[in-house]
Each structure stands twice: as structure tokens, then as C-alpha cells.
Design a protein around this nucleic acid. Structure first.
Length: 502
RNA sequence: CGCGGGGUAGAGCAGUUGGCAGCUCGGCGGGCCCAUAACCCGCAGGUCGCGGGUUCGAGUCCCGCCCCCGCAACCA
């Protein structure tokens, strides 16, 4: 019997820059899933937070003449502010400087050590400060990191601890082979599989404290702190209270949402670490693409970085959520432009969902005395709609799910035209049965939208005298949920036209 | 032999297991008047980057090729 819990996490953004629209995409995707599973009655842990250790943070704090922790506090607050701006429902906000996380990272280290997977090695390594990663010769171009060619690759001659990643190559490949959906979309699983097939090199997991002190102390060795990745990845379980039992067993393994730049860390490094510690691997990893702006990569120098707070301020939370989920391809890179955003807003939200909600409520008010008439059978293939919608969401195919919903909306609009109840009413014909179908269809639309655009969806349901807190899936997916006699009341316009602003 | 993504209607994009090429915006012409000048129907507009191959049938599978984008501090 499957447990009735669900756990999902984003990656933890590194706190050396303001929140990025790409991270907004990631966390909204995770939020939709968290809300969706809550509607299904599951107990949900939804984790996010900030990654705060490492050389870059230490350097940035020094430059700002701040204590690293104070520097991190500032940034953590910026990320935490997304909760309100994007209407997020995360339950955990972990910071890798949190005391219990630090303890967990140390315990994790001990487990890997006990498994014989941590060893000391004298070595000379080429290290890119920009990536916080060591580079192999094959990764360098002209002796430089291809991602940070302006930085000199540092040659480091030191004794560090290493993690025996190579030991887990076969186990990882076996896991990928036996779990075809382990990394979604499938193309990303292929990508990581071929990377692992190419061979794994043990990676360094510590830094000399005298060179870099802003990190988790290595247990039993005063001279070293942990490499930032090693400590940060442990957050996915430290947030569940690990190594204490209870919530950990209850909620792990969980789902991880990450950007394509994080494929290797999430689906190979972290999984190798879990194998070493003797813990179950993640349940599933969903990899989203990047967002470009007007066809170009966002960068500060180009001045085209889209800030999620600005977008929300200009258009509102729900329109931003709907755009991120519905207008960008979930599986690949997508392009943002103001024009495209506003077009989508007008077409989908104003003319589509908003207008249908308004005309439906008005007609029931006019023709049925603002009360839900007696129930009649479905005419919109609502069951098929739910099936398709659910299948898309379960595959993290958010844009597809929204297309499915929009097709349903179109179907309802077509039926209104076909039935022309406004004509029949004038002729004295009984339009009550059709009014029921309309209002009930609107209930399904509002219900399906609850995870996506929660505020607007709640207002749609409120028009039908439904309290969103009472909505449960799959019960609410059945046709006929609207109660005869329930009051229907047209509310404020859901999505105002943008022209109205200027 | 670097890695990855992509080339489908004027623009922006969908196209699961190969089976009549779709969606949004824009253009044109109708309908409707319940609705946020919204909604519905129809028309115009495509050699699905190019060349081969497999197949009864290829946007979709295979081989070869061309072109575009990201992999530059910051940055998902």
C-alpha cells in the first residue's frame, strides 16, 4: 500500500545573486505539484531554501565587508520573499547554515566514511573558482574553463578528502536502467546515463580550512571543511529531520525539481552519495529548461535579466504563474518576451477563462434566478479531460496540461454558441438543464486550476458557493458535484484587460 | 569527431507509441449579443531546413549534410 505522503524539493539557489525568473519557474512548478498532491489528500512536505557555503560566498561577504552569515541572511530573506510574491506553499525553508543541517551533513559524511568511501589524497587539481568545481583536462578548453574563460584555472596542490564516486558507476547505471522514469524528461535520463557510462572520477569533497573557512567542519579533522556541493546536497534529507527518524522515513524518497545545469549533481553525484550512505535514492528528478529573454540568454551585462518580483508587480501573481507554466515548454528551453506574455494573458486568461467565468455566472443569474438548477448528465467529456490533465501533470508536462484545460474551455464556449440559451430564454424555452452543465463545467475548470492559479481558481469556485478548502480529489472530478439550489453570484472581473491600466 | 537545444502558416509555438498537418496572435469574411468590444463559424497562408533510406504510409524511424542558439564576469 503506497504511503499517503508526498515530498518535493527545489534545488537550493546559491545566495550570491537576486532571485532569477528561472528559479521562479522551478519553484512554481514544485508548488503546483505540492498543491496538486495536497488536493488528493496526501500529506505534503515541500522544501526549498538557500545554499550558503563556499568560497564565492566568503569572497562576496569579504568584499561587502560583512560577516558571511549576515551576508547570507540578507539573501535568504530575498528568496524567502518569493513565497508571498508567487503564492507558494512550501513547508520548509532550509538554509545550509542551519544548525541541524550542519549536523546532518557531518553525520552523512561519517556514514560515507564508514562505508569506506572517503579517503585522503595528495593531489594537484585544476580548479575553477567560478564553478566551485574541479575540472578534468577533458573539460578544459585551451587550458581554461569553458564556462569561465576569463578566470585562470587554479592549480591546487593539497591534500583533500575524496568521495569514491567511481565505486557506484555500475549501481547508478543499474538504477537508471531499472527506473526509466527516474529522470524526466527521458532525454535527460539518456544524457546522464551516457555521462556515467563514460566513467566516474572520484571527486574532492573537502577544502583546507586555512584557505577557505566558510563551510561545514569535517568530522574528526579540524584542518578541513566540506566542499560546498557535498554539504548542500544533504539538505534534501536534513530538511526531513534526518538522521532522526520519523519524518525521514515518512517522506523520503522525494521528488526533486532542478534546472538542466544541475542534472549531474542531482541525478548522479547525489545519488552516489545516497548509495554510499545506505539510504534510498530519490524518487524522481524532473529537469526543466532555461528561459531566454527575447531570444537571448539573460545576463546582467545585457541588462535583460527578468526579475520575478517586477513581473508580479506589473501583472499579478496568477498571471505570472500561468505564464510560467502554460506558455513555456516544460521539457525544454523557452523564450520570454513582454509581448508574448501580454498576448498570452489576453488570449488565455482574459478572453478564455475570465470571460467564460463571467458569462456563465451572468446567465445562471439571469435565467435561473442565481441558483444551480437540477443536475443533468455531462456533455463535455469531463472524465476524459481529467484523465488527460492528470496524466500531463504526473509527467511534469505543465504546458501540455494547460493546453488540455484550454481545449476544455473552448469546448464549453462552443456549446454556448450551439445552444444559444440567450435566444431560447427569450422564446420561453427551458434552459435550466444547459445552465447546469455550464455551471458544473465551470466548477471543473476552477477545480483543475486550483494548483495552478490558486487565487483566481478560488474566486471561480466562490462564484459557485464552493469553498476551495472543501475540494478533494478525485471526488471533485466526478460530474455532478454542484448542488442544486446553490447560489451563483458573479464576482469581480477575474483578469482585467491590460489596456485598462494605461 | 567538445556538450546541449533547435530549424513546422506573416510572428510565436504544439505535434505521445509513424495513419487526413494543429494552437495562439495577426489578416479577410460571416454569426451572435449571455459575456471583460469578449465568444462561435469559415477563408487565405506550410516543398514540416536539405538529400537519401525503411514503410502501404514519415513532421514522426534510420543514414548523411546545411544553418541557428546557449555553454563570456553575474547567472536557473
Amino acid at each position: 500500500m503506497p504511503k499517503n505522503t508526498y515530498s518535493i524539493t527545489t534545488t537550493l539557489p546559491y545566495v550570491n545573486a537576486d532571485p532569477h525568473i528561472g528559479f521562479a519557474l522551478e519553484i512554481v512548478q514544485a508548488d503546483v505539484l505540492a498543491r496538486w498532491h495536497r488536493l488528493k489528500g496526501e500529506e505534503v512536505v515541500f522544501n526549498t531554501g538557500t545554499d550558503e557555503h563556499g568560497q564565492k560566498i566568503q569572497a562576496a561577504a569579504e568584499k561587502a565587508d560583512m560577516d558571511p552569515k549576515a551576508y547570507c541572511d540578507e539573501y535568504a530573506a530575498k528568496f524567502h520573499g518569493l513565497k508571498e510574491a508567487l503564492d507558494l506553499t512550501y513547508t520548509n525553508f532550509i538554509r545550509t547554515t542551519d544548525e541541524h543541517h550542519v549536523k546532518a551533513a557531518q553525520e552523512f559524511w561519517k556514514r560515507c566514511d564508514a562505508a569506506g568511501d572517503i579517503y585522503k589524497k595528495q593531489y594537484q587539481v585544476k580548479y575553477c573558482v567560478g564553478c566551485e568545481l574541479e575540472k578534468t583536462d577533458s573539460e578544459l578548453v585551451d587550458g581554461k574553463c569553458p564556462i569561465h574563460p576569463k578566470l585562470e584555472v587554479e592549480l591546487r596542490d593539497e591534500e583533500n578528502y575524496f568521495f569514491r564516486w567511481s565505486k557506484y558507476q555500475a549501481a547508478l547505471l543499474k538504477h537508471y536502467g531499472e527506473n526509466p522514469g527516474f529522470v524526466m524528461p527521458e532525454s535527460r535520463l539518456k544524457e546522464i546515463r551516457s555521462f556515467v557510462e563514460g566513467g566516474l572520477m572520484d571527486f574532492s569533497i573537502s577544502r583546507l580550512k586555512e584557505k577557505m573557512s566558510w563551510g561545514v567542519p569535517v568530522p574528526g579533522d579540524e584542518a578541513h571543511v566540506m566542499y560546498v556541493w557535498f554539504d548542500a546536497l544533504v539538505n534534501y534529507i536534513s530538511t526531513l529531520g534526518w538522521p532522526a527518524s520519523g519524518d525521514f522515513e515518512k517522506f523520503w524518497p522525494g521528488v526533486q525539481v532542478a534546472g538542466k545545469d544541475n542534472l549531474r549533481q542531482q541525478s548522479a553525484m547525489w545519488q552516489g552519495m545516497l548509495l554510499s550512505a545506505g539510504l534510498p535514492l530519490s524518487k524522481q528528478i524532473f529537469i526543466h529548461g532555461f528561459i531566454t529573454a527575447d531570444g537571448q540568454k539573460m545576463s546582467k551585462s545585457l541588462g535583460n535579466v527578468v526579475n520575478p518580483y517586477d513581473l508580479v508587480q506589473a501583472y499579478g501573481t496568477d498571471p505570472v504563474r500561468y505564464y510560467l507554466l502554460g506558455s513555456l515548454p516544460a521539457y525544454e528551453d523557452g523564450d520570454y518576451s513582454r509581448k508574448q506574455f501580454e498576448e498570452a494573458y489576453a488570449a488565455k486568461l482574459v478572453n478564455g477563462i475570465g470571460n467564460l467565468a463571467a458569462r456563465t455566472a451572468t446567465m445562471v443569474e439571469k435565467y435561473c434566478d442565481a441558483k444551480v438548477p437540477a443536475a443533468v448528465p455531462d456533455r463535455f467529456n469531463t472524465e476524459d479531460f481529467w484523465k488527460a490533465y492528470e496524466a500531463s501533470l504526473d509527467r511534469y508536462h505543465f504546458d501540455e496540461a494547460i493546453r488540455v484545460l484550454e481545449r476544455y474551455v473552448t469546448g464549453v464556449n462552443q456549446a454556448i454558441d450551439l445552444e444559444a440559451p440567450f435566444k431560447k430564454a427569450k422564446l420561453g424555452e427551458d434552459v435550466a438543464p444547459f445552465m447546469y452543465q455550464l455551471a458544473e463545467a465551470l466548477r471543473h475548470i476552477g477545480t483543475a486550476l486550483l494548483p495552478v492559479i490558486p487565487a483566481a481558481a478560488s474566486r471561480i469556485l466562490a462564484q459557485l458557493s464552493i469553498d476551495p478548502a472543501d475540494v478533494r480529489l478525485p471526488e471533485a472530478e466526478a460530474w455532478g458535484g454542484l448542488k442544486t439550489g446553490a447560489v451563483v453570484k458573479k464576482g469581480e472581473i477575474l483578469f482585467p484587460r491590460l489596456e485598462a491600466k494605461s
